[in-house]
Amino acid sequence: MPNFGIPRRAAADFRSESVTVNWRRGLFRVWILISAGWIMGWTIYLMLEGVQGSLSTRGDFIEVPILLFAPPIALWLFGFAAAWAIRGFEIDR
């Protein structure tokens, strides 16, 4: 009978293979998703507030870009600084 499904491997095969993880690419993608969610959520909220007439003064419209883009940029800068700090613990070769 042919073997259908997931092939079985010995446990030794899994230990010998080293899995490398690209943390930079993965965390960058997580940041993109969180930032997109933040911007989309606030955009929907602000559109609903605008329909109700709550955004009426000029100062309200100046706050919108700050509210949308400042937190994702601050999160990116924090991640950049954290990566810089973690790289400081690497052994010099």
Rank of each mutant, 00 (worst) to 15 (best):
T43C: 00
R25V: 08
M40N: 12
L27A: 09
V19D: 09
G53Q: 00
L46W: 00
L48R: 09
I39V: 10
N22H: 02
V21C: 03
S35F: 00
G41P: 04
V51A: 10
R29V: 14
Q52T: 05
L55N: 02
L46T: 03
L55H: 05
M40I: 12
S56P: 00
T43M: 06
G50I: 05
A36R: 05
T20N: 13
V19Q: 07
V19T: 06
S56H: 11
I32W: 07
G50V: 00
T43R: 09
G26T: 07
T20H: 08
V19C: 04
R58M: 13
F28R: 04
M40Q: 07
G37E: 01
I34S: 08
R24D: 08
G26H: 06
R24Q: 12
Q52W: 08
L48F: 11
L48P: 01
L27F: 04
Q52S: 06
N22C: 00
W38D: 02
I44K: 13
V21A: 05
L48V: 10
V19E: 15
G26V: 05
L27Q: 11
W31P: 02
G41Q: 00
I32C: 08
G41C: 03
W23A: 14
A36I: 01
W42N: 09
G53D: 05
R24T: 08
R25E: 08
G41F: 02
W42L: 12
G37K: 01
G26Y: 05
S54D: 15
Y45R: 15
V51M: 14
G41A: 05
L48N: 13
L48K: 03
A36V: 09
G41E: 05
T57S: 15
S54E: 15
R24F: 15
T43L: 01
M47Y: 10
W42H: 07
R29N: 07
W31S: 00
R58N: 15
E49G: 13
R24S: 11
W38L: 03
I44V: 12
R29C: 14
M47C: 13
L55S: 04
I34M: 10
F28A: 09
E49K: 13
R24W: 10
N22Q: 03
W31V: 00
M40S: 14
E49C: 09
I44M: 09
Q52F: 12
W23D: 01
I34L: 14
G26K: 10
L48D: 12
S54A: 15
